[in-house]
């Protein structure tokens, strides 16, 4: 049951409903859902297709700029603006994906990183369009259908609705034939290609979806903070999205929301206590890589399975548990 997508959707709904109860800041709550989308999109590439993209910040930044430019300079309504961000995100992701998937493994990672730097300097250089270092200021949260989004919690529920819709669609995608084909490519690309799947087209399609969703998240983020900052298209933006993805765990999409949420809450708490909290983050990343390779979700899975075997009072089948973790490596 723990790996059932319907269950993951229920968990997402519960999270959306519970965030306002536990968080005082509507900004943080909205940010969790917005990054949740971006991280799920990154996960679609990393967890489902096996592509480690260091370029997710490109799409996030592009989305922010779409919101900034269309809302401040052209007064385009929000739904149309979000649509434009989706399309532009997909188009740029197709370009970046098409060029990057020419190489594999580490080379692919470096290519995506290179593109992320390229787009950063593009945004930095053409400051007439993007505001350069300052970004685009005064991005409004206009009134939509009678709802006043200047109130942060109202805006949260708007973000939540968009989040749940997109999250459901992404869950559906991962369960479709398309999603299963992506997993086949992740597991064994040569075989998937030999069976006759156009592997490259599938990878580019995964990029397109990922780019579209990430750009949507970027647009929502610019509306949330009222600025389309240069930092959204920076190396750090890509880095943070990737870190959240790995911390959450790359096996399923709810893990991404978990990763985004725990990162942002911890960052919020720690940065208030100690300005050098990134030192702890660095340490945490090393610990995750050494001891928690399946991320927070992997940790939850292990807990659930050990609780389960506790109630069953019978030892778990050796083959299964040794494949799951290092705990009974001694027996093997």
């Amino acid at each position: 049951m723990i790996n059932n997508p319907v269950f993951h959707f229920v968990l997402a709904v519960i999270t959306v409903l519970c965030l306002p109860l536990f968080l005082r800041s509507g900004v943080l709550a909205s940010e969790i859902l917005i990054y949740g989308l971006a991280v799920a999109a990154c996960n679609l590439l990393l967890g489902f297709t096996g592509l480690l993209s260091f370029g997710q910040g490109i799409f996030f930044g592009v989305g922010s700029y779409v919101a900034g430019i269309l809302l401040t300079r052209y007064q385009i309504p929000v739904p149309e603006m979000l649509l434009v961000s989706l399309v532009l995100g997909a188009v740029i992701a197709i370009g970046v994906g098409w060029l990057s998937i020419r190489r594999q493994g580490v080379y692919f990672v470096m290519l995506t990183l290179a593109f992320s730097q390229f787009f950063f300097f593009l945004a930095y250089t053409f400051s007439g369009l993007t505001g350069g270092d300052n970004g685009i200021l005064d991005v409004p949260r206009p009134v939509i259908a009678g709802f006043d989004f200047t109130d942060l919690w109202n805006y949260y529920y708007f973000v939540a609705a968009v989040f749940l819709l997109v999250f459901a669609l992404m869950l559906r995608t991962t369960q479709s034939t398309f999603g299963h084909t992506l997993r086949a490519i992740r597991e064994n690309e040569a075989r998937a290609s030999a069976i006759g799947f156009p592997v490259k087209a599938f990878k580019i399609a995964a990029f397109a979806i990922s780019g579209a969703v990430t750009a949507l998240a970027g647009a929502l983020h610019a509306m949330l903070i009222g600025v389309a900052p240069l930092s959204n298209i920076e190396y750090h933006s890509s880095e943070i999205i990737l870190i959240m993805t790995i911390i959450g765990g790359s096996g399923n999409l709810f893990a991404s929301l978990l990763g985004a949420g725990s990162y942002l809450v911890l960052a919020d708490v720690l940065s208030a206590i100690w300005p050098r909290w990134l030192l702890l983050l660095g340490l945490a990343l090393i610990v995750v890589a050494l001891f928690m390779q399946r991320g927070l979700w992997g940790l939850i899975e292990s807990l659930v399975s050990s609780l389960g075997s506790l109630f069953r009072r019978a030892p778990a089948p050796a083959a299964e548990s040794s494949a799951q973790g290092q705990t009974d490596g001694g027996k093997a």
Partner: peptide
């Protein structure tokens, strides 16, 4: 200890290391 792990974890560990060195330099 991590050479045998997938590239994802090489990146995670060295990004973590870079962050730690940067923050220690600031301290």
């Amino acid at each position: 200890r991590i050479y045998k792990l997938p590239h994802t974890f090489h990146i995670l560990v060295t990004v973590g290391l870079a962050l730690m060195i940067q923050e220690l330099a600031i301290i």
